[in-house]
Design a protein around this nucleic acid. Structure first.
Lengths: 258, 258
DNA sequence: TGCCTTCTGATAGAATTTGATCGGAATTGT
DNA sequence: ACAATTCCGATCAAATTCTATCAGAAGGCA
C-alpha cells in the first residue's frame, strides 16, 4: 500500500467510525498500515476538533452514552466546586430587572441554576438545557428567550436561525462559557458553528463577561471567538497561573478570581 | 467475538436496561462475556452519572422522574389510544428525505415519537419537548430545527423570534395539533400567541395536515388559526360524529380516520 | 547540499482496565 | 431468630493501553 497523507488517513478514520460506531486503536493501526502511536496522534487531533470522542482503547462518535441525560451534565456542572464558585461570583453582578444572555456550557449551566430566583430577569440562551432550568423554576416574573437553530452535541443551538435571533436582540450582560483561552489565540471553541454563534452573542450584549475555570487557560480550540481584549471581564478560579493572571490583567479591564 | 470497548459495553448495558427495565449482574456478565466484577464496575460508573440506579443484584432505570414532568406529559400523550392511532396514520405519510414541521401539542408529540427512525428527515418544531425526543434518539441522518422564542405553558415557543424563524423556512408537510375545531370557527387555540405562530407554520408548509382527536370537534378556543377549508387534510379518530364527518368532507380535500 | 520543520516510529514508564479472591453485607428460607 | 445463599466492595496481580520523549525519515527552502 502506498503512503497516505495524514489528512486522508484521518478521513478514513472518520469513515470507519461512521460505519462501525466504534474503532479500536490496534485495528486501525493494522488497517491503515501505520503504528499505533500515529493512530493515537490522529485520534487526539480529531478529538480536539470535536470530530470524535476518545475512549480507552479507541474512539467513538457520540460521547453521550445515555441519550439525553440531564443528570449527567447536571452533576458534572454542579459538583465542580470551581464552577460553582465562578457562578456565585457571576450571579452577584446580576440585578433584578436586567436582561442577560447565557451561551451553552457547563459553567453557564451552573450560573443559570443560581439565577432562577432573581426578579424581573430576562434571559436569552441558545441552550435548551439551560432554558429547561428556568422553565422548571417557573418564576412568573422572568422572561426566558430561547434562540432557534439546530443543536450541536454540546447542547447549543447554532446556525442561521440562531444568528438571526441574536441579531434581533440586545441584552445588558452576556456570560459566555468558552473551551479554551490563550494569550495568542484568545477565546476559542472546538466547534466552528458555535464560535459563530458566540460571536453573535458578543455583538448582542452591551457588556461581555467570560466565565471559565482555570483549566481552560492554555487550551486552544479549533476556532477563535474573539481575542482576549475584546471582552470586558473574565471570571475564573484562583488556581490560575500567576503568569496567566498577569497576561489577563493586561488584556482585560476586569479579572475576577472567584 | 472480538473484544469490546468499555464504552460500548456500557452502552449495551443501557440498551438492555431500556428494553428490560431490569438487568441482573449475573446475566449481564454472561451476555457480555466479562466477569461480574467488571459488570459491577460498569454499573457503578453509570450510576454515578445518574444513568441508572443500582439495586441489589443488578440495576434499574431511574424510577422517580426528577422534578420536571416530562414523564407526565409523555404518558399522557402516549397512553391515549386514539392519539397513537392518529400518529400512526400520520407517520405513513412521511417518507425518507422529507422535511416536516410539528407544532407543540400532545398529538404531535405522539407523532414525533414515531418518527425518530425515519432516514434523512428534517424536522422543524417550536416545542422543546418534541425536539428533545429527536435529540434523545440521536439519529445522525436527521436534522432537527428548533424555532426560537419564549415558551408558553403548553410548551410552545412563540413570539417574534418564532415568527421570524418560521418566515425563513419552508417544509414539505406540516402536522398541526389544534385545541378546537368547528364548522363555523375553523381551527382554534386558546392562546393568541400560539395562534399567530401556528399561522406562520401554515405559511411555511406546502401541505398542511391537522392532527386532532375526535374530542376537539365542537370546541372553540379563543383564537382562530385558520378556517377549515384552508388546510389540506385532517387526521382524526373514527369516533367522530357522522354529522361532523359530512361537514369536514365538504370543507377539506382529505379526511383520514385513523 | 545543508538546515529546518513536520511527520512517523520506537521505547519506557505511568495509568487504566480487567479478573480472581476473600471477608463482610444483604437477602431469603425455615 | 438463625443459617444458607447470594451479592457486594476492597485489594492485588496481570494485561492492555496511554503519554512522554527521543531519534530517524520525508519534504520544503535558501
Amino acid at each position: 500500500m502506498t503512503e497516505m497523507l495524514a489528512s486522508a488517513r484521518q478521513q478514513r478514520i472518520l469513515d470507519a467510525l461512521r460505519e462501525r460506531e466504534q474503532v479500536r486503536v490496534t485495528s486501525l493501526a493494522a488497517e491503515l498500515g501505520v503504528s499505533e502511536m500515529t493512530v493515537r496522534r490522529d485520534l487526539n487531533a480529531l478529538a480536539e476538533r470535536g470530530a470524535l470522542v476518545k475512549v480507552h482503547g479507541g474512539a467513538t462518535l457520540d460521547a453521550a452514552p445515555t441519550s439525553s441525560e440531564p443528570g449527567f451534565t447536571h452533576k458534572l456542572a454542579l459538583e465542580s466546586g470551581e464552577k460553582q464558585a465562578i457562578a456565585q461570583a457571576a450571579v452577584k453582578l446580576i440585578k433584578p430587572g436586567m436582561s442577560i444572555a447565557l451561551n451553552s456550557g457547563t459553567t453557564t449551566y451552573a450560573l443559570a441554576s443560581q439565577c432562577t430566583g432573581i426578579k424581573d430577569l430576562t434571559v436569552v440562551t441558545n441552550s435548551p438545557r439551560i432554558a429547561e432550568i428556568f422553565y422548571a423554576a417557573a418564576n412568573p416574573s422572568q422572561n426566558i428567550i430561547l434562540t432557534g437553530g439546530i443543536r450541536t452535541v454540546s447542547d447549543a443551538l447554532v446556525g442561521p436561525l440562531a444568528l438571526s435571533a441574536l441579531g434581533q436582540l440586545h441584552v445588558d450582560v452576556l456570560f459566555l462559557g468558552v473551551h479554551g483561552m490563550t494569550s495568542e489565540d484568545g477565546f476559542t471553541t472546538p466547534n466552528m458553528l458555535e464560535a459563530q454563534t458566540n460571536q453573535a452573542f458578543i455583538k448582542a450584549a452591551a457588556r461581555q463577561i467570560i466565565v471559565a475555570d482555570h483549566t481552560k487557560w492554555g487550551v486552544t480550540g479549533l476556532c477563535q471567538i474573539v481575542p482576549l481584549s475584546q471582552v470586558d471581564a473574565l471570571i475564573t478560579g484562583p488556581r490560575l497561573d500567576e503568569e496567566a493572571k498577569v497576561l489577563l490583567r493586561q488584556a482585560l479591564d476586569t479579572l475576577i478570581l472567584a
